[in-house]
């Protein structure tokens, strides 16, 4: 049992570190949000299930926290990205295509 716990929390820790590194390395706020959101969500799931393996009586509450995080973390990043786009934060120069600008222009008219 303890082996499973160790493997799970170390994997979770690795994803946390990768998420932080992605936050640091990516060129603009949109790509940063990608790295941050995905890595931390899986990292949180893994560490929490790891903690639940050692204490099975906590599992219901831990699953509730995991559900909450999986439901809200993407919503938070989406809202943040949308408001960044609406505030005209510049995307990185490597951005290839932009179909969203046309939609907002149409909305303004």
């Amino acid at each position: 049992m303890n082996i499973v716990y160790y493997i799970l929390i170390i994997l979770g820790g690795i994803f946390y570190a990768v998420g932080g590194l992605g936050l640091l390395r990516m060129p603009d706020v949109y790509t940063r949000a990608q790295a941050g959101t995905k890595a931390t969500t899986l990292g949180t799931m893994l560490t929490m299930i790891g903690a639940g393996v050692v204490h099975p009586e906590w599992l219901p509450k831990i699953i509730l926290i995991i559900l909450f995080i999986v439901l809200t973390n993407p919503v938070g990043s989406s809202t943040l990205i949308r408001s960044a786009y609406r505030s005209r934060v510049e995307a990185s120069g490597r951005t290839a295509i932009d179909e969203l600008g046309a939609y907002y222009d149409r909305e303004v008219e």
Partner: peptide, 14 residues
């Protein structure tokens, strides 16, 4: 993230 060349080609699509 770990690739030193950072292979990305971002864009907004519908």
């Amino acid at each position: 993230v770990l690739n030193p060349k950072l292979p990305i080609n971002p864009g907004f699509v519908r």
